[in-house]
Each structure stands twice: as C-alpha cells, then as structure tokens.
C-alpha cells in the first residue's frame, strides 16, 4: 500500500480505532461505576419502595 496517500489512509483508520476504543472504554468504565454505586447503596440497606418487604419473605426479581 506504499502510496503517496498512505498517511491519509493510516490516519483515517487510526482515528477511527481511537474513537471506537474510547466508546468501548467509556461504556465499560461507566457501567462499572454505576454497578459499584448501586452495590454500595444496597449494602447500606437502601432499597426501592417496590422492593421493601417483610423479613422472611423471598426477595423479588433483581433489577
């Protein structure tokens, strides 16, 4: 592919790869942050009103 325009082609694919990598990383990091925050709240005993239940009753479906 050694052409006069090789730099333009390489730059195009490199920028695309960077943007896609950033999208994937952002998705993974954001998901992990929210899951951790939710787990911390639930560990402190905070539940939604719809999930509040008397002791001994089975827990509702996760979500």
């Amino acid at each position: 592919m050694g052409t006069a325009h090789q730099g333009f082609i390489v730059a195009s694919y490199a920028i695309t790869a960077l943007v896609i990598a950033a999208l994937i990383l952002r998705a993974l990091i954001d998901q992990r942050l929210q899951a951790r925050a939710l787990a911390r709240l639930e560990a402190r005993g905070v539940t939604r009103r719809s999930q509040a239940r008397p002791a001994g009753r089975p827990a509702p479906e996760a979500g």
């Binding site: 999208l23 998901q31 899951a35 709240l41 639930e42 905070v46």
Partner: peptide, 29 residues
C-alpha cells in the same frame, strides 16, 4: 458494534437511574 454499545449504554443508564432513586431515598431517610 454500535448496537452492542447502545444496549450497553441503555443498561448503564438504567443503573444510573436506580442509583439516583436509591440516593434520594437514602437522603430522605
């Protein structure tokens, strides 16, 4: 790829809203 990113983004947004709701409930308590 974009469909996978969109689904992942939607799942995270649902989690974010649950975190927000629980944080408000905790603050009220």
């Amino acid at each position: 790829l974009s469909a996978a990113l969109h689904l992942a983004g939607m799942r995270t947004e649902i989690l974010r809203r649950r975190v927000r709701t629980l944080s408000i409930l905790e603050a009220e308590r």
